[in-house]
Structure formats: C-alpha cells, structure tokens
C-alpha cells in the first residue's frame, strides 16, 4: 500500500465497479427470464416447442428425487419448532397455543425457505455446473449453429420444472412439518393428535398457504436464473466450473433470504 490516503477512493471504486457488474448480471438474468417465457409461449410457432419430456425429466431430477431429503428436513424442522414452542410458551404456561406459532411459521416461513435453500444447494449447483460444462465444451455454440435456441432447449425446461416443483415441495414440507410437530406436541401435552390437527386447520387461512407457496415459486425462479446466469458466465476450464457452481449456490441462498424478507414486508404491510 503505497499511499493509504488513496485507499478510500480505491474502495469506492471497487464498490462502484461491483455494483455495475451486479446490475449487468441482473439485466442479463431478466433478459434470459423473458426469453425463456417467450419461447415457452411461442416456441411452437418456430416449430421449436419447449419439450414436455425435457421439463418432466427436470421435474424428476429437481423435485421427485429430492423428496427423501426434503421429508427428512421438513420433519426435523417441525420437531425443532415444536420443541422450541413448547419451551418458550411453557414460560407463560401457554403450551396449549403452540399449534398457532408452529402452523403459521411453518407455512409462511420455514417450508419455502428450507426448501429453497435445499434446492439451491442441490439443483441450483447442478444447473450451473451443467451449463458451465456445456459452454466450455462448445455444446451451447453447437446448439446455436444447429438453429436450436439454447434458451428454449436448456433454460425453459429448467425454469418450468422449478416453478412447478418448488411450491409442490413446499406444500409437502408443510404437511410433513405439521405432522411431525403435531405428533410431538400431542404426545407431550397428552392431547389427541386429531384435536391438534383440527386446531391447526382452524388457525391457518388460505392466504397463509398462498403466501408460502408464492414465495416458493419465486425462489424457484431465483434458483433457475442464478444457476443459468452463473453457468453461462463460466471462464477457464474445470476450475471455472467449480467456481461458478459455488458462486451460484452462495448467490441463490443470499437472494432467497433477502427476497423472503422483502416478500414478507410487502405482503404484510
């Protein structure tokens, strides 16, 4: 460091440059998003429809094969919430109201968020790695020269799959978490499990469920786009693939947490 006085300038310059690069990436992501939707809606007109089989394959890969781990996570979260609720409400002798907090926080927060993080780590990374490898091997160029639109062929199915599977996973996580929590709570409070479920259904409004599923869908879009954008920005060889894969997971999770907060703020105001 030759001149420490220059440092603040350097820092601001760095921040500025990163902001511009970040905005650039967001613009790129938006362009890809709209192009993917465009091809989904109008592909048949160019005689290049988005292949349903390909979307199904992605749905299997991102959704169905994630079920075991999703179930395990959801059950654990349900138990954790039950334990914590009973403990904290027990301080006031209000254990019998535990179902309220559990139901609302599972459906509105935990299910979409945990599924988002799980799928970002599991599928977002896979999307980025696949696309990065394909770019490096010139497979994307090959598609382009064949007249096969790469966005239509590679991105649309992934986007469709995640947008459909994320709410399904979140819904599944809702059921599993509430069941797991219910089993624990009713055992601890020596109540019937049926009564617990009835109370839960009473307290949950349709709006709460939609709030959670809406977020899950949004997270699906985020995971798909971050994976695709990072994958297509790859530079260098195998090392580059590793870098963009890690980066895509970190960015997806960050964006999911931030979007979650913004979504909650906007829809509860």
């Amino acid at each position: 460091m030759a001149n420490p006085l220059k440092l603040p300038g350097k820092i601001f310059e760095g921040i500025g440059r990163r902001t511009v690069a970040g905005l650039d990436e967001m613009g790129y992501a938006a362009a890809i998003f709209f192009e993917a939707i465009y091809w989904t809606l109008t592909g048949w007109r160019y005689r290049q429809p988005v292949r349903i089989t390909s979307a199904f394959a992605s749905m299997m890969q991102f959704g169905v094969t994630a079920l075991p781990i999703a179930t395990l996570l959801a059950a654990t979260i349900g138990l954790m919430l039950a334990i914590q609720s009973l403990y904290s409400l027990g301080l006031f002798g209000a254990e019998q109201y535990a179902y309220i907090g559990i139901a609302l926080s599972v459906v509105r927060e935990f299910s979409p968020m945990i599924m988002g993080i799980l799928i970002a780590g599991r599928s977002g990374s896979a999307i980025a790695a696949r696309l990065a490898t394909m770019s490096i091997n010139q497979e994307v160029d090959a598609l382009q020269v064949m007249g096969i639109n790469p966005v239509r062929f590679l991105v649309s199915p992934v986007l469709i799959a995640l947008v459909l599977m994320m709410p399904c996973l979140a819904m599944w996580a809702n059921l599993v978490s509430i069941l797991a929590a219910g089993l624990y709570v009713s055992a601890q409070l020596h109540q019937s499990f049926g009564a617990y479920l009835n109370d839960t259904i009473d307290v949950l409004k349709t709006g709460d469920v939609w709030h959670g599923l809406g977020k899950a869908t949004l997270f699906g879009v985020i995971i798909a786009l971050v994976g695709v954008v990072n994958g297509s920005m790859v530079q260098g060889g195998a090392e580059g693939v590793g870098k963009v894969t890690t980066r895509s997971v970190v960015i997806s999770i960050t964006l999911i947490v931030v979007a979650d907060m913004i979504f909650a703020y906007m829809t509860t105001k």
Partner: peptide, 8 residues
C-alpha cells in the same frame, strides 16, 4: 467443432 462439441 474442433473438439467435437458432442453432448456428453
């Protein structure tokens, strides 16, 4: 392409 660019 030079390296084939076959879909792996």
């Amino acid at each position: 392409f030079q390296f084939g660019a076959l879909f792996s």
